[in-house]
């Protein structure tokens, strides 16, 4: 009772000093005001406005006059019937599929490698593998355009020196290989993130399971296949969804290495929206429609992801 009274007193004292204390309900609102304002301004409104623009004709003339004529679904019709957009979409799917499969396989393999105890080089890998994460995507793209250069490229120099080739290889300049050439720098830059997620999941696996299986005579491969891999499945699905949705929006490496070329060999969805909106003919309505289609594709993946989190919490 005495403590209660004392608490009421100090509450009153601090209340007097700092004004009336807010209820948790109001405090939650006040603390979220800046976030809600910023998200409304920079996320919610633009997403709504992109939808608005995609139903209107918006070009340089309209931007100057400030009047955007309503055109209904015309922009969507033009995008969906544009062979270049279809090509860009197909390229985006091909690119994402290669990138995500390669990343998952490599991430599991490298995470197992850096998880090895008593191998000192694994500790070195654990530190150095973070370097790609720190490289700006656009710089990564330019570095690889030097690696891939037909005449002066670093990769060809290595292969010449090793005696593997006698003629230079045109890695990114050949329409048949250009899209594959872009996947390598992209995987290089984003692999550390995937490795870290798998590594975190690996550390959560009970070591006794492995030891028991080893005692029962299971070799390393069977232990991986029957114990580790099933336990890694949830994180692999997370990586699958996260990485696919980000790979759908690949941009910097395309800009730096091929600019969509040669021809239309490496046009991807984000590049299509960017070029249509911010290069002649500056067709922002068309660009918005194509960007919205990309957002819808990614949105489906995002819903899947949120669903998965719910399941994990339950």
């Amino acid at each position: 009772m005495a403590a209660d009274a004392e608490r009421r007193n100090t509450d009153a004292a601090s209340g007097a000093a700092s004004g009336r204390e807010l209820s948790p309900r109001s405090l939650a609102v006040v603390m979220n005001v800046p976030t809600i304002l910023i998200l409304a301004l920079v996320l919610a409104y633009p997403i709504y406005y992109a939808g608005f623009l995609s139903f209107h004709q918006v070009g340089p003339g309209q931007l100057r006059s400030g009047v955007f004529p309503f055109v209904g679904l015309l922009n969507y019709e033009r995008v969906l019937t544009d062979p270049l957009f279809q090509k860009a979409l197909l390229n985006t799917f091909t690119f994402s599929a290669i990138v995500v499969v390669a990343e998952i396989v490599l991430a599991v393999a490298i995470a197992l490698l850096i998880n090895q105890q008593g191998i000192w080089t694994s500790r070195v890998t654990r530190i150095l593998m973070l370097v790609p994460y720190a490289v700006p995507p656009i710089a990564n793209g330019l570095v690889w355009s030097f690696m891939y250069s037909y005449q002066f490229g670093f990769l060809n120099r290595i292969l010449f020196t090793l005696g593997v080739i006698t003629e230079p290889i045109n890695w990114a300049g050949n329409p048949d290989t250009a899209l594959f050439a872009i996947t390598v720098p992209y995987v290089w830059r984003t692999l550390p993130f995937a490795i870290l997620l798998v590594h975190a999941a690996l550390q959560g696996i009970n070591k006794e399971l492995h030891e028991a299986a080893a005692v029962d005579g299971a070799n390393a491969w069977r232990r991986f296949w029957h114990i580790t891999l099933p336990l890694l499945t949830p994180i692999i699905v997370v990586i699958l969804v996260l990485r696919t949705s980000f790979a759908f929006a690949v941009f910097e490496e395309i800009l730096a290495i091929t600019q969509g070329g040669p021809g239309d060999a490496t046009w991807v969805a984000a590049w299509y929206s960017y070029r249509k909106s911010f290069a002649p003919p500056f067709d922002i309505g068309l660009g918005s429609a194509s960007a919205y289609l990309l957002a819808m594709l990614v949105g489906i993946l995002a819903l899947v992801y949120v669903r998965m989190i719910y399941r994990r919490v339950e």
């Binding site: 998200l39 920079v42 918006v58 759908f248 929006a249 960017y274 909106s277 960007a291």
Partner: peptide
């Protein structure tokens, strides 16, 4: 509503930046 806000944040992480850039440029 704070739990809803969290879910919105998860969704927002997926928004491709190019989708935001076109309307942001016009605005």
């Amino acid at each position: 509503w704070t739990i809803w806000l969290m879910n919105l944040n998860v969704m927002a992480r997926f928004v491709p930046i190019i989708v935001l850039m076109i309307p942001l440029y016009v605005t």
